[in-house]
Simulated assay, not measured.
Amino acid sequence: IARVGGTVEKVDRWGKRRLAYAVKKFTDGFYVLINFEAAPAEIKEIDRVMKINDEVLRHLIVKHEA
């Protein structure tokens, strides 16, 4: 996130949890919630990198209106 120009505000590691259903034959996953701030173009790059990263099974980026 910082590499593309965003700023990380908070990292909340939830730990290893059982997935609701198997994803790529995995039944457990490590959950992490990251609050960050970035421009729209930077968010597109973060999303692209998450999609090609083999260690990330699923990700979701949500806009938070303050």
Rank of each mutant, 00 (worst) to 15 (best):
I1T: 12
I1W: 04
I1R: 06
I1N: 10
I1E: 08
A2V: 07
A2T: 09
A2K: 07
R3F: 04
R3W: 02
V4A: 10
V4G: 03
G5L: 04
G5N: 04
T7V: 07
T7C: 01
V8D: 05
V8Q: 06
E9A: 03
E9F: 00
E9V: 02
K10N: 14
K10G: 02
K10A: 12
K10P: 02
V11Y: 02
D12R: 01
D12S: 04
D12Y: 01
R13D: 08
W14M: 12
W14P: 00
W14K: 11
W14N: 02
G15V: 00
K16Y: 03
K16D: 13
R17H: 10
R18M: 11
L19K: 09
L19A: 10
A20N: 15
A20P: 11
A20M: 14
A20K: 11
Y21M: 13
Y21L: 13
A22L: 13
A22P: 15
A22F: 10
V23S: 07
V23L: 14
K24I: 05
K24T: 08
K25A: 13
K25R: 15
F26Y: 15
F26K: 15
T27A: 12
D28R: 13
D28E: 15
G29R: 08
F30C: 09
F30H: 13
F30P: 00
Y31C: 07
Y31Q: 08
Y31N: 08
V32P: 02
V32Q: 03
I34E: 02
I34T: 07
I34S: 03
N35F: 06
N35S: 07
F36E: 06
F36Q: 06
F36H: 04
A38H: 09
A38G: 13
A38Q: 09
A39D: 13
A39T: 14
A41W: 01
A41H: 11
A41M: 06
I43E: 10
I43N: 06
K44R: 14
K44Y: 01
K44N: 14
E45M: 08
E45V: 08
E45K: 11
E45Y: 01
E45D: 12
I46C: 07
I46V: 15
D47H: 00
D47N: 05
R48E: 12
R48L: 07
V49F: 12
V49N: 08
M50T: 00
M50C: 15
K51Q: 12
N53Y: 03
N53L: 02
N53S: 14
D54W: 00
D54R: 04
D54I: 04
E55M: 08
E55Q: 09
V56E: 09
V56F: 07
L57A: 11
R58D: 07
R58E: 11
H59A: 00
H59V: 00
H59K: 02
L60Y: 03
L60K: 11
I61C: 06
V62H: 03
K63E: 14
K63P: 03
H64M: 08
A66S: 04
A66N: 02
A66M: 01
